[in-house]
């Protein structure tokens, strides 16, 4: 069966699942303990990657920030696109 999957090339790559799950849990752990490096750089890197699938932007055009209030935090994301986008352009 595995051999079959191998030839079909659709054998699941469990390492990808491991990485995705780790990214999420590590961010939650860090938030819960207040220890460890911030997840913002990781998020920023991911956002740049996603936006780049559609628009060609520089690394410094994506800004992420967390605004912490008493018992609520706001994630602020600023993405600057080159030129003007949208139907009226």
């Amino acid at each position: 069966m595995r051999l079959f999957e191998y030839f079909l090339g659709n054998r699941p790559r469990t390492a990808d699942a491991a990485k995705d799950r780790l990214k999420l849990i590590v961010v939650r752990d860090r938030a819960a303990t207040g220890e460890g490096p911030d997840f913002l750089p990781m998020l920023q890197k991911d956002l740049i990657e996603v936006v780049r699938r559609y628009v060609d932007i520089d690394d410094d055009k994506v800004q992420v920030d967390v605004d912490r209030k008493d018992n609520l935090s706001m994630l602020e994301v600023n993405i600057e696109l080159p030129g003007r986008f949208g139907p009226n352009s």
């Binding site: 054998r11 790559r13 491991a18 590590v26 490096p37």
Partner: peptide
């Protein structure tokens, strides 16, 4: 196992732990 996609590769771990 890394090549087979069943084990995290070095870069994956580095990306998370930084």
């Amino acid at each position: 196992r890394v090549e087979q996609g069943d084990m995290l590769k070095t870069d994956d771990v580095l990306e998370i732990l930084a």
